[in-house]
Design a protein around this nucleic acid. Structure first.
Lengths: 187, 187
DNA sequence: GTCTATAGCCCGATAGAC
DNA sequence: GTCTATCGGGCTATAGAC
């Protein structure tokens, strides 16, 4: 059934929950209608499963990539590099993360970009301000300033506006994002 | 019929093109089915009209806000303040601009965030690099770094993550965005 | 367990009353 | 010009063959 989840997520990203029909999912996944309804009680339940699985997968990757990283700057760099890597290796997952928001499907509780991992980034930034690594001020504004650079790059890469793989321009982007929020004393 | 366009755009933003039915548009606009089909050949044509009108309106505002502005930094500031102002005064318009992309409705040619005004911002940044106001490098990366901060703030404001009206935090955001790309010699 | 065929519903679009 | 009533089509979900 993983096949159904992957195929459906791809289609949901392309045309939205309401723009995708069960027959289309059948064609794209090669799994019949009956088999789909055997594993998912209905279309809405399939959408919830996709949401939950995608969030869990991202959270796991995120937690892992922060292990053993110390400074605020390096933590933010690790987050950025993870996001860039996912964008190249599993663009559907990344695009789903950027487009899922309340209303995009029934029972989508919140945008994935406002869930635990992204709130954790806000916490990292707040700690960085307290440590003097990031310039003083509203931590939410600082977090947005940093992640804005990263997330926008992902969006434009997914749209094909950026031609190069993100890892190739990662250093410049991460440098710019850091320059937006670093304390005057930091390089 | 402007009433239909406004009501339909609101609904499209909330639930997507395929998630909105004609009966819903009838209810939300107070205009009957017959009257809608008298002015728009079909649902798809209504969506195209919304797309075109929104793009035209934004382009006009954008062109106007740049009149008489000289330096690269001030041009980018004018763009940012315009976007923040629209976000507060016509959030439906702004949210539509951020969510409209190919696939979101039939005949959506491109994301509004990749249309003329946003390409013009890229041109402004390229000129800023040539003039030495912005640090040297890939102009597209620089433009993304600046607009990323601004656009992300708009997204989180529309989602309710940012509680204050954007004009109240505009100065901090614009300062951060500029810090991300300014030349070492610039303040 | 897996599929095909179909029931029942609601949508987009239209025709005709006023 | 404006509305309501309706048609045909395609959707979700299920029932029953294999």
């Amino acid at each position: 059934m993983d096949l159904v989840v992957r195929a459906a997520r791809r289609l949901f990203v392309e045309r939205g929950y309401y723009g995708v029909t069960i027959p289309q999912i059948v064609k794209a996944s090669g799994v019949s209608v009956g088999a789909i309804y055997l594993h998912f009680s209905n279309k809405e339940n399939l959408a919830s499963t996709i949401y939950q699985r995608t969030l869990d997968e991202f959270t796991a990757k995120f937690t892992k990539c922060l292990m053993g990283v110390e400074s605020t700057r390096d933590k933010l760099r690790a987050f950025s590099e993870l996001v860039f890597e996912i964008t190249e290796e599993d663009p559907d997952m990344m695009e789903y993360m950027l487009t899922a928001r309340p209303g995009s499907s029934p029972d989508c509780p919140m945008p994935l970009c406002s869930t635990a991992p992204f709130r954790e980034v806000q916490r990292i930034v707040a700690a960085g301000i307290a440590a003097g690594e990031i310039k003083p001020g509203n931590y939410l504004i600082a977090a947005i300033s940093y992640t804005g650079v990263i997330v926008r790059a992902v969006e434009l890469r997914l749209q094909g506006v950026i031609q190069q793989p993100l890892p190739e321009v990662a250093d410049d982007l991460i440098e710019n994002a850091w320059a937006a929020i670093r304390a005057a004393s930091q390089s």
